[in-house]
Design a binder for these strands. Sequence first.
RNA 1: GCGCCGUUGGUCCAGUGGUAGGACAUUGGCUUCCCAAGCCAAUAGCCCGGGUUCAAUUCCCGGACGGCGCACCA
Length: 591
Amino acid sequence: MSDASDEHPETDLMELAKRRGFFFQASEAYGGVAGFYTYGPEGATLKQQVEDAWRDRFVTREGHMEIDAPTVMPEPVFEASGHLDTFDDMIVECPSCGESHRADHLVEDATDVADAEALPTEQVEALIVDHGLDCPACGEPLAGVDVTDFNLMFETAIGPGSSQAGYLRPETAQGIFVEFSRLKEYARNQLPFGVAQIGRAYRNEISPRRGLVRVREFTQAELEHFVDPETDEPPLERVADVELPLYSADAQQGDGDIETLTVAEAVDENVVTSDWVAFYLGLARSFYERIGVDMERFRYRQHLPGELAHYASDCWDAEAEVDGNWIEITGFAYRGDYDLSKHAKYADADFTVFQQYDDPVTVERAVVDPDMSVLGPEFGSAAGDIAAELDRMAAAGDEQFENLSDDDVIRVEANGTAWGVPADAVDYHVEEVTEAGEHVTPHVVEPSFGVDRLVYTVLDHALETDEVDGETRSYLGLPAEVAPTTVGVFPLMSKDGMDDRARDLAGTLRQAGLSATYDDSGAIGRRYRRQDEVGTPYGVTVDYETLENDTVTLRDRDSTDQIRLSVEDLPAAITALRTGGDLADWGDPVE
RNA sequence: GCGCCGUUGGUCCAGUGGUAGGACAUUGGCUUCCCAAGCCAAUAGCCCGGGUUCAAUUCCCGGACGGCGCACCA
């Protein structure tokens, strides 16, 4: 047995999450649906705080912008992005052993068909019959077995009838790429700039698993940092000394282990090849620590060569260890110009940025100005293509144009045929042009965070069990910044006016901007435990002494230490403690 | 999607062919001057559909959901 119970003998995370309102299976009243979770009151707040911390770190503090795009987008977007093809898996299921296989892969492996994925299913079925393919698992023939499409995108119809096909976005990124033209306008055509988005994405997973780890609807926090590949460099000096626990592809393939390098070392030794990726690995590390990811159970893992997406040259995942498994919580990818180039090809918009030179440059450029009144009658319908080819040849510096005299004939390959074009009809000349700049397709650096997995990791890493006065206690050691509630306020007993006093005090703390909860049910110890279990970092108790001298006790969740301080100082004390103050600075220890 | 196992108050479990019991939690009361105490009481449950049967929470079939393994994870 290597399940969670080893580590948390008293409390299982899923059980706590259900019981205390962090998250639970959605639509349970109707039997539940796999892969969908509802965040309860505690979880929704926790998730919000994690998102706020992310926004602070990756948007506000970096001077980036944030947008909020629709979750439904029309089909052509996903033709361009490649999701329609690559998300459309052909599956064939062996009738004898029940194994599912990618039908297109089977065909590609066994035949000289290179791109079976692009073929209709009927044709793939026919290829399986023609080549007598067998099940790789059990060897039984697969001829005659149905090949079915399984698309991981949720499809929907936009408008009445079947007017337009749309899909729920499988990643938030496309919402940014699609709007690039307006966004760069907003950025006043200046590279670099970063656009962030926190939002839902949808994947119709074949098999959702393990709580929040693999779900069908999830929240991503993505940053697309658009940079000029020639001139923009990341400010590596800001993170040069940050230590990165790196698990390189080499280490994974050999018997290597996690190696801790500073960002500067990782770049110098070329362990991380992209400076931009290295920069974000450094920046993100402090974010993970801040929201409560245990750095002892954290690593950056490089994608193996076979694992790399087709557009990425180097890619690292941030991974956290949860329940004995490493789960991906962030992907850091250098996507190059893949996305913008694809959209440029498919869409009717400009996906480049015009980069002005510091000083305009004057260049000599060879051009042709073919006399179409000669080429037209001479070459008929090929004339246009021939002119275009001449244009290309001149720009490429074709040697035929050197020392040209009027009665020469220029050989041109167009439409698969060789043509001879009289030189006097071409008007080849060299002209001086002044160029103020150039159109650049920006490259994209993409840190992409899975918010739900972050929340799940933070909860798992926060769950602690200790012993207080001989009793086992479980509590969530959440950082105060992300804890759903900051302070619990309790009357020692609900009589003699202590309850009214405590209720007032909770109100006062809320007015001071603190998230406070009031509880007078049961014994005081029981109320402390309730708040411990949802990670509330501080507890304030109103007792008889409060009624005499306006002082209260303030309890620290992790140590259960208490101090006594005046009610007047309370809002300031909690505010200070929340951002890392020391309990002892604010009052005298109790007992 | 396949295979194995499972599904009983809010939670975790026990149990039964004649509709169920515990622990914890929750609520009310008594008690209690700071860490899940005690006492009394209350609330609350057999995943769904079909079949077999006089009778199904229990047995059979199917489904949903969950755990694990395989496959999948652009």
